[in-house]
Amino acid sequence: MKNSLTIAFIGGGNMAGAMLGGLLGNLCQPQDILVVDPGEATRAAWDARGVVTAAVACEALSQCKVWIYAVKPQVMQQAIEATRPFLQDDTLVISIAAGLPTTLLSGWLDQAAPTRTTRLIRCMPNTPALIRQGITGLYATPGVPAADRQRAQDILSSVGEAVWVDQETQLDAVTALSGSGPAYVFLFIESLIAGGISLGLDQEQAQRLALATLKGASLLAAGSDQSPARLRENVTSPGGTTAAALNRFAQGDFAGLVQAAMQAANDRAAQMAQESAAAAQPAQDSGKK
């Protein structure tokens, strides 16, 4: 990644900005980045970091070896149609848009050149990427070279960890676990804080205790060679306070509730993919003669 303008972000929002923070000084320099975004304020923020920007798709895209689509799913087709004229046969395309399957993306990307098979990788990052503590699930379409897979992993690893899946449908499970997972954790934190306040602590005390507990327990689990189940057992004395609390969790089927919630997220992710494909079909059919 030494050539000028080697990575293009189509869309310069929060996730793109998080990725830029991990890339600069690591995999590339500001002059190696092109950001295409119609928002003047967004471009100004990127300009201030020394990055090359453009309001609309332009010839500079053809010089970029990696394109990262970081736009909302509902404007993805429009973004692809605008940038597609500059797509090269060896361009690596990475999509971070939720709910858009690779079959749909490939159809849009290769519409003007049916004999071309775009090198396409779809991924599901999560919001802790904003502080370089994210984790991203990645899926590569058949035929993506090993070098491109490594390049994608290097890019996404700049904001956290990266995990590959072998089947695209597994990205729905990634969405249900790590994509939506931060919201589950935030809800648990809210509940811990509310519980602490109900027991007599003030807001600041309860919040500090809750946040430090989640952080410490997560770091302990990540750095331990023992399973989370074993760590839980280590904290739980028979007949003690922790056992009393865990028994109440069990009575409410806490584990089953978490699994049911994740299943709902998984099912909704799959449904969104179907809805996106169905919505795109009339537009594709209208172009046929």
Rank of each mutant, 00 (worst) to 15 (best):
V165S: 01
G252C: 11
S237W: 11
E81Q: 12
P85R: 09
I7P: 02
Q78T: 14
S4Y: 11
W46G: 04
M124I: 14
S178R: 10
R132K: 13
Q74N: 07
Q78C: 01
D110L: 03
G196W: 01
I33W: 05
I121S: 04
L219N: 11
T6Y: 10
Y184Q: 10
V144F: 00
I189M: 12
A265P: 08
G287H: 13
R43Q: 10
R232E: 08
A250M: 09
P38I: 12
A245E: 10
V159S: 14
S95T: 15
P182R: 05
Q74I: 03
G137M: 08
T53E: 08
A212M: 14
G252W: 14
A112W: 01
T127G: 06
L23R: 04
M272H: 02
I7H: 02
L109P: 05
F254M: 12
Q284T: 15
A45W: 02
R119T: 13
R116L: 11
S237N: 05
G216L: 06
D47T: 06
L257N: 07
Q274I: 08
G287A: 15
A60T: 10
P145M: 03
G21V: 07
L27F: 05
A273V: 02
I94F: 02
R151F: 03
A55V: 04
E40Q: 11
V52C: 13
A245L: 09
W46C: 08
R43E: 13
L177H: 04
I121M: 07
N234V: 04
A176H: 03
E190I: 03
T175V: 11
A152K: 09
A221F: 04
G11L: 03
R208T: 15
E168P: 05
R119L: 15
A45Q: 14
Y184I: 06
P30C: 00
G99I: 11
S158A: 15
T6E: 15
V144T: 11
A280S: 12
L209M: 15
I135Y: 03
W164M: 04
L130E: 12
I193W: 09
E161A: 14
Q251P: 00
I131M: 12
V185D: 00
L109V: 06
S178M: 09
Q281N: 09
A82L: 07
A162Y: 04
P114V: 10
P142H: 02
S276T: 05
A229H: 05
V235S: 10
W46P: 03
N26V: 09
A243L: 02
Q88T: 15
A243D: 10
L201V: 04
P30G: 00
A217W: 05
K288S: 15
P238E: 07
A244H: 08
A222D: 12
A279C: 02
